[in-house]
């Protein structure tokens, strides 16, 4: 059985940052494995560990050379090998729309022919939350979005998943394989990479492919979305900020709570 995990390296923004044009300058950004994808990697590795027969976990990522550190981290956590896709045609514009991502990932995954594809519900930076399902449809796979419990018995049998709906409800659904599942945070406890894992990851296969290698025509990836503006949201806050040291602030706060009448006595 082969499980592919598509991951993204995402940027987190410092508390104090500035916007320059339609992007945030590098100095305010910190790169890491997308939180949702971390859960997807863990789910794949747990699936591998729980099964006697051979399960191969392949990490697939679109990203520049910088993202290899993040990809190696997924390998250190137990994935077997990785494919990184990059091309000058993907570097500009900076916002990769869903169609571009699914076209590129679908080409890479067709070659891998996995039984199962796991990915995060969304990337924490652009928050599209659409690539996994779009990818499934492009591959002709089944799918389920926002999965917080996954039970795979065998590639020849349907998997049972829980989809996290709103308001504390979960939908229990049976899904034929092959399928793409978008993984919600909290489905498992992502491990930290061990020192041995980090050492081993250095010698694991990390293949780098460009669009030619995937047989993708560069004209076919014309971005459909244009990032016209980026700005800090204007604050609509009318919160009264309580100043002063902790003791002073706590005193004032206690008075507000008492005035609200929620404390007995």
């Amino acid at each position: 059985m082969r499980v592919a995990v598509t991951v993204r390296e995402v940027a987190a923004v410092d508390d104090n940052f500035e916007v320059s044009g339609t992007s945030i300058p590098e100095q305010y950004l910190e790169y890491d494995l997308n939180e949702w994808d971390d859960y997807a990697v863990e789910e794949a590795v747990q699936l591998k560990e729980a099964r006697d027969e051979d399960v191969e976990v392949v990490v697939v990522a679109i990203g520049p050379e910088r993202s290899e550190e993040t990809i190696r981290m997924a390998l250190a956590k137990g994935a077997d090998r990785a494919v990184r896709i990059w091309d000058d045609a993907l570097a500009d514009p900076p916002l990769l729309d869903v169609r571009t991502q699914r076209t590129v990932l679908a080409a890479a995954l067709k070659a891998e022919d996995p039984d199962l594809v796991l990915t995060g519900v969304q990337a924490s930076d652009d928050a599209f939350g659409a690539t996994g399902v779009a990818l499934a449809h492009a591959l002709g796979y089944e799918w389920a979005a926002v999965v917080n419990d996954l039970d795979v018995v065998d590639p020849s049998e349907p998997a049972t998943v829980h989809r996290e709906l709103e308001g504390g409800l979960e939908e229990v659904t049976e899904v034929n394989l092959p399928a793409v599942f978008t993984i919600q945070t909290g489905i498992n406890e992502p491990r930290y990479a061990s020192l041995m894992g980090i050492r081993q990851a250095q010698s694991k296969e990390l293949q780098v492919l460009d669009l030619d290698a995937l047989g993708i025509d560069r004209d076919a990836i014309t971005p459909a979305l244009e990032l016209e503006a980026m700005y800090k949201p204007t604050s609509e806050s009318d919160a009264e900020m309580i100043e002063g040291g902790p003791d002073e602030a706590a005193g004032e706060l206690a008075e507000i709570v008492r005035d609200a009448g929620v404390i007995e006595g």
């Binding site: 996994g132 779009a134 979005a145 989809r163 709906l165 979305l225």
Partner: peptide
């Protein structure tokens, strides 16, 4: 952009070969 919307809208966009903007 509900949990169910997230489950069908990207597939609709792919099926129609239309761009998708979410949330």
């Amino acid at each position: 952009n509900s949990v169910n919307g997230m489950d069908y809208a990207p597939a609709v966009a792919t099926a129609l070969d239309w761009p998708i903007v979410t949330d």
